[in-house]
């Protein structure tokens, strides 16, 4: 152990003396992108995007994973202006108001148009992908499904959902109900209570329980069946279209105002809208790209439902509604 350390020091000293190590490092600037766990894993979008961007930027793109989407905001706030990160990637529309209020995010400077179902003009947050929340079922196990939120609450079907206090999809459902039903939200939750098998802390537990056959429906995304179809050749999963419309989740990137690599960060944000980034998204993040690549979407995506009505509360309104809506959810379901 001691010998190895001594040898290591010796090599480092020699390298430094010969001027080998230091200049090489100085020539390659590092761009640090703070993102969520599943983005950086070998099966996520991270590796392909890193390779494509490094090929054109003469830089080192480094991803730092900070848990899930909600953990990112918390980490940004903990780190403040001392953050090593230059770009944050993976916040969603339920969190952008709080993130904007920190003053840590600088304008992205990119212009549309985006392929989003809603107009987008946020100067601070740049959309990179999006999806509709939806309930997913197994067509062989549960062939008959209700056509609206209200019909679901009145049915006998068993559902598993996520907790809005610890999970982004869980919060998405609360916002969905709020946007679609308004004042009728508490009544909806009261009616849904007997359908709920359980509430899980995160998406993975809920989806795992659904695949185990514990529930007829699980709260997920309209794009979830694409994973089973494309990656597993399994066409039995489908999302259910609801008459009230479907709530959107738009995932966004932002430049940190305190970055020490502002130009590189701008280049990365410009890169986010290019086909090299966008074409990786559908089959790694299993979401819709914010700017559709020229070749269109991968085969299999055409089988997915496309809701007619897209719901999305403005960021500041979502922020203001979150507390009361989650309280109403908890009160109704704790009875």
């Amino acid at each position: 152990m001691i010998r190895r350390t001594a040898t290591g020091t010796l090599i480092a000293t020699c390298a430094a003396a010969l001027g080998l190590a230091a200049p090489a490092r100085a020539e390659t600037p590092v761009l640090t992108v703070l993102t969520y766990d599943s983005f950086v894993s070998e099966w996520g979008p991270g590796p392909a995007i890193e390779q494509a961007f490094e090929a054109e930027c003469a830089c080192d793109l480094r991803f730092v994973a900070g848990g899930d989407g909600a953990a990112l905001l918390s980490r940004l706030m903990l780190e403040g202006t001392r953050s090593e990160a230059d770009v944050v990637l993976g916040l969603d529309t339920n969190l952008t108001a709080a993130a904007a209020a920190t003053g840590l995010i600088a304008p992205h400077g990119q212009t549309g148009p985006w392929d989003l179902p809603v107009a987008w003009d946020d100067p601070l947050f740049l959309p990179y992908d999006w999806g509709w929340f939806a309930f997913v079922h197994d067509t062989t196990r549960t062939p008959q499904v209700p056509g609206s939120l209200m019909a679901l609450a009145e049915s006998d079907l068993k559902v598993v959902i996520q907790d809005p206090r610890s999970s982004t999809p869980g919060l998405g459902l609360v916002m969905w109900v709020q946007a679609a039903l308004g004042d009728r939200a508490p009544a909806f939750w009261a009616a849904l209570a007997d359908n709920i098998v359980t509430v899980t802390p995160g998406w993975s537990e809920a989806y795992g329980l659904f695949l185990e056959g514990e529930a007829d429906l699980v709260l997920s995304y309209t794009t979830s069946p694409a994973y089973h179809l494309i990656a597993e050749g399994d066409a039995t999963k489908a999302a259910v279209a609801f008459a009230e419309g479907h709530y959107l989740q738009v995932e966004v990137a932002g430049k940190l105002a305190a970055t020490d690599q502002p130009d590189l960060a701008d280049r990365f944000l410009a890169f986010v809208g290019t086909p090299a980034f966008q074409s990786v998204i559908p089959t790694t993040n299993w979401m819709y790209p914010a700017r559709q690549p020229e070749g269109g979407l991968p085969a299999g995506f055409e089988t997915l439902i496309r809701p007619d009505i897209s719901l999305l509360l403005p960021a500041d309104q979502a922020q203001a509604l979150r507390g009361p809506a989650v309280d109403a959810w908890r009160t109704a379901l704790s009875q």
Binding site: S74, R165, L171, L333
Partner: peptide, 24 residues
């Protein structure tokens, strides 16, 4: 939470999680 069947099965640890993650 997972086996509790609903928000009635909320523990203090979940409240800590919520305070740190969503309410900052």
């Amino acid at each position: 939470l997972t086996l509790g069947g609903g928000p009635g099965a909320t523990t203090v640890e979940l409240a800590i999680y919520q305070a740190l993650r969503f309410e900052f």
